[in-house]
């Protein structure tokens, strides 16, 4: 815990920060990756285990592409138009969000980026991220509504993601 905090200049926000600092998280059901000595046993177990068991034992991947391999195969980050076409052919519905650098970023209340929904990816954009329609990266295999964030090639936000 931090012994000293800087302040936000707003009393309620500082208090909220202290309450967040004081949170003691309840332990979550999480099985760590196996140690080497256990790997063999788990490997044998995997021979008879179902994919559902494997999903419980190991921490699942976080990206949509990892959960939905067909999405991973369809994504070409440098070509959002082709990606959208391929995903639609697979039965996905795609909502496009254009993310651009905010020239006023750094000022109070100014986001690092601007965003707006677009009907189709503009020319010269690349794919920034793929998520569910709510912007959540945790999806289930039945997910069919996707949100794809795109950004102009050369933008700061794209560079920071592709580094």
């Amino acid at each position: 815990m931090t012994a000293h905090r800087e302040t936000t200049g707003i009393v309620a926000l500082d208090e909220l920060g202290r309450r967040l600092d004081a949170v003691v998280e309840r332990p979550r059901l999480r099985v760590r990756r196996p140690r080497r000595w256990a790997a063999l046993a788990l490997g044998l177990l995997a021979l008879v285990a179902t994919p559902a068991i494997a999903a419980v034992v190991f921490e699942g991947p976080e990206r949509v592409e990892d959960k939905l391999p067909e999405v991973a195969a369809a994504i070409d980050r440098s070509d959002p138009v082709a990606t959208g076409r391929a995903l639609e052919e697979l039965g996905f519905r795609v909502q496009w969000t254009l993310i651009t650098d905010n020239p006023n970023r750094g000022r109070d209340g100014e986001t690092p980026t601007r965003w707006r929904a677009v009907d189709a990816p503009p020319t010269g954009t690349r794919i920034l991220s793929v998520s569910s329609r709510d912007g959540d990266f945790k999806v289930d295999p039945d997910t069919r509504n996707l949100q794809i964030e795109i950004s102009p090639a050369g933008s700061e936000i794209l560079r920071s993601h592709e580094e």
């Binding site: 936000t8 967040l20 600092d21 109070d108 209340g109």
Partner: peptide, 22 residues
């Protein structure tokens, strides 16, 4: 990390509050 999160909170909380207030 917890301390890192705490620092990031102090750095960004006000901007987020104003963003949402607007």
């Amino acid at each position: 990390t917890r301390d890192g999160f705490s620092e990031a909170y102090t750095q960004h909380a006000r901007s987020i509050l104003i963003f949402l207030a607007r």
